[in-house]
């Protein structure tokens, strides 16, 4: 009898962690579909400055993405391509394609609270972390993501709150190794596109600097369309800049 209880509890735990994994996976699918193209506007607010940028992005799976800046006019036509773990940038003003070196990967992308690394390694949430359900509160499931020992991620852990009625995240909190909060993402205004749900308002906030945040509003979203493979080549950087 006793043995049976142990068996059950192990089984339950397995189930439990599997469930966490399933939730994370569904969340991830919602965020990217087979492929996704978005038009978004990004507002970066810091103590002294406030800037708005608009851009168009195309991405397929976790390895390929292409981004083009539409606004402001000063930056219009700047394009980014990330393939696997590499990232290139084309700047029309200087007519150069530049490969972003590792030393720049952790710099803030276009001055926002998002790093280049966040842009490139979007996949890692499923591959690099061990998920565990902390609690379930009606529709909201709180999952703790602990990085796998060999995962090349800087965070100590990430706590995400997922609304399982839509499989979208409500809030992600990033912690360092000592368990101190570094930054968090807030997601709002979930909309349905085809079979996918996605929040159309994101806010990235640094935990220490309360006055610094980045807001992203998804203006147009299209899932699973025919994205031309032309976008995911180095030649696209220049070609689609105009």
């Amino acid at each position: 009898m006793f043995r049976f209880i142990i068996f059950i509890s192990i089984f339950a735990q397995l189930l439990f962690s599997n469930e966490a994994y399933e939730i994370i996976k569904k969340l991830d699918e919602n965020m990217r579909g087979e492929n996704i193209s978005m038009r978004l506007s990004m507002r970066v607010v810091s103590l002294r400055h406030e800037r708005t940028m608009k851009m168009q992005t195309y991405s397929q799976g976790t390895k390929k993405s292409f981004t083009k800046i539409l606004y402001p006019p000063k930056d219009k036509g700047i394009t980014f391509l990330s393939l696997d773990n590499q990232m290139w940038q084309y700047v029309p003003k200087i007519e150069r394609v530049i490969k972003i070196p590792p030393s720049m990967m952790l710099q803030n992308w276009m001055g926002s609270d998002i790093t280049n690394d966040d842009m490139v390694k979007q996949s890692s949430i499923v591959e690099d972390y061990e998920p565990r359900i902390l609690k379930k509160d009606e529709n909201i499931v709180t999952i703790e993501l602990i990085p796998k020992e060999d995962a090349a991620v800087v965070w100590g852990k990430i706590i995400i709150n997922i609304d399982i009625s839509t499989y979208t995240s409500v809030k992600d909190i990033f912690y360092d190794e000592d368990g101190e909060e570094i930054r968090y993402f807030i997601y709002e205004k979930v909309k349905k596109f085809g079979k996918y749900y996605i929040p159309t308002y994101w806010r990235v906030q640094s935990s220490e600097k309360k006055n610094n945040f980045t807001e992203i509003v998804l203006e147009e979203v299209e899932y699973d369309t025919e994205i031309s493979q032309q976008y995911f080549k180095k030649s696209a950087l220049k070609r689609f800049s105009r």
Binding site: V44, S46, H49, R51, P72, V91, I94, I98, M110, G111
Partner: peptide, 16 residues
């Protein structure tokens, strides 16, 4: 020599 970096308002800057 091409230069890319951030301007004083954190916006993107590049030049030759």
């Amino acid at each position: 020599v091409s230069f890319i970096g951030g301007a004083s308002d954190n916006s993107f800057s590049a030049d030759i």
